[in-house]
Computed example of a mutant assay.
Amino acid sequence: MEPILELNSARLLMRQWRDDDLPAFAQMCADPQVMKYFPAPMSRLESAKLIGRIRGHFAEYGFGLWALERKDNGHFIGFTGLCVVGFDAHFTPSVEIGWRLAREHWGLGFASEAAWTALGCGFEHLDLDEIVSFTAVSNQASQKVMQAIGMHNDPDDGFDHPNLPDGHPLKAHVLYRINRQQWLATL
């Protein structure tokens, strides 16, 4: 399949990563508030490696986490997209929708807008039957985005993230899902 290199929403260009995204991305990933629901803030090198893994995902699957650029000013603000879940759980194999935005762009509806666009790509172009999303139980902001884009949570779907050690405060996760029929019903 030919990679899906670009998507557009009303206010955002969802595009491939450029080398000049690294400074803003590294700054975002070093922000303790942005990384509050991840194991730790990331160094510049860790951020660069993540961009490399994202590019590799696009090369392997034809889709991934698109860089988000505001159309009104051209600023890089984070990422949103789809990726194959990289660990074993009761809901895998599956494709996850995820996002991460710089703090100054929170609360403006960008995460929901980009996520909605990514869902459309997943169901219309990739012909997926279901898309999942998950986060730490305490991450209410991401759960609100999941709900805003029509995803549903079954409390029985909760799980402990296998990449976090026992006793870690972020180990308990919630799982949200949306299938093609649920997505079509929201149109």
Rank of each mutant, 00 (worst) to 15 (best):
I4H: 10
A10Y: 10
L12H: 01
M14R: 11
R15K: 10
W17C: 02
R18T: 12
D20P: 12
A24E: 13
F25S: 07
M28L: 13
P32K: 11
P32L: 08
M35E: 01
K36Q: 14
K36Y: 12
K36P: 06
F38V: 11
P39D: 10
S47F: 00
S47D: 02
A48N: 11
K49G: 12
I54V: 15
R55E: 12
R55S: 06
F58I: 09
G64C: 10
G64D: 10
D72N: 14
G74A: 12
H75S: 14
I77V: 13
T80N: 13
C83F: 12
V85P: 02
F87A: 06
H90G: 15
T92C: 01
I97G: 05
I97K: 04
R100D: 00
H105A: 08
G107H: 05
L108N: 13
T117G: 07
T117H: 05
E124S: 14
L126W: 01
V137Y: 12
N139M: 01
A141V: 13
Q143W: 02
M146L: 06
M146C: 09
Q147R: 13
A148F: 01
A148I: 04
G150N: 03
D156H: 13
D157M: 12
D157S: 14
F159K: 07
P165T: 06
P165N: 06
A172I: 05
A172K: 15
L175V: 14
L175G: 07
Y176D: 00
I178A: 04
L184V: 15
A185Y: 05
